[in-house]
Computed example of a mutant assay.
Amino acid sequence: MHEGDKKLGFYLEGDEMIVGSYRTPPLCLGSTLGIIPYGKGRIIYSTLDVVDNLLSQEPAAEVARKLFCNMLISNW
């Protein structure tokens, strides 16, 4: 859900930041898209507004669809 300029980012030890957000208290750079090592694999997490845009017919929603596909098939 998009709520104006509100952004959520995580400050995690050991994560690999892909996309960051500076609006995370206490005003430090937080990860809005990142990777966390887990066992022999990795977890990709995101707080970006992707899911709500997957079925949208708006031209700008193509960015969300492309990002979602990249998250599924990427070798990040």
Rank of each mutant, 00 (worst) to 15 (best):
M1T: 13
M1V: 14
H2S: 13
H2G: 13
G4A: 00
D5H: 08
D5N: 10
D5P: 12
D5A: 09
K6S: 11
K6M: 09
K6C: 08
K6P: 07
K7F: 04
K7N: 14
K7L: 09
L8P: 06
L8G: 01
L8V: 13
G9V: 04
Y11S: 10
L12S: 05
L12W: 04
L12P: 08
L12G: 06
E13N: 13
G14Q: 06
G14N: 11
G14H: 04
D15M: 00
D15A: 05
D15N: 11
D15P: 08
E16V: 15
M17P: 07
I18D: 03
I18T: 06
I18C: 01
I18H: 03
I18A: 03
V19I: 14
V19N: 07
G20D: 10
S21H: 07
Y22S: 15
Y22V: 15
T24P: 04
P25T: 13
P26E: 10
L27S: 09
C28L: 11
C28K: 13
C28V: 14
C28N: 11
L29D: 11
G30D: 04
G30N: 01
T32W: 00
T32Y: 00
L33M: 11
I35F: 00
I35L: 06
I36K: 05
I36E: 06
I36D: 01
I36Y: 01
P37T: 10
Y38I: 15
Y38V: 15
G39Y: 02
G39S: 07
G39M: 03
K40Y: 05
K40F: 00
G41H: 03
G41R: 08
G41W: 02
G41V: 08
G41Y: 01
R42Q: 12
I43F: 02
I43R: 00
I43C: 02
I43N: 05
I43M: 00
I43Q: 00
S46T: 15
S46N: 07
S46H: 02
T47Q: 03
T47V: 04
L48K: 01
L48F: 00
D49L: 00
V51E: 10
V51I: 12
D52N: 14
D52I: 05
D52W: 04
D52F: 00
D52P: 06
N53C: 10
N53E: 15
L54S: 01
L54K: 04
L54Q: 07
L54G: 06
L55R: 09
L55M: 09
L55T: 09
L55A: 10
S56M: 02
S56G: 04
Q57H: 08
Q57P: 07
Q57C: 00
E58A: 11
E58T: 10
P59Y: 06
A60H: 15
A60T: 10
A61W: 01
A61D: 05
E62G: 13
E62H: 05
E62K: 10
V63H: 02
V63M: 06
A64M: 06
A64G: 06
A64N: 12
R65K: 15
R65Q: 11
K66S: 12
K66G: 07
K66E: 13
F68L: 06
C69G: 10
N70E: 15
N70M: 12
N70D: 15
M71Q: 02
L72C: 12
I73D: 10
S74I: 03
N75L: 04
W76A: 12
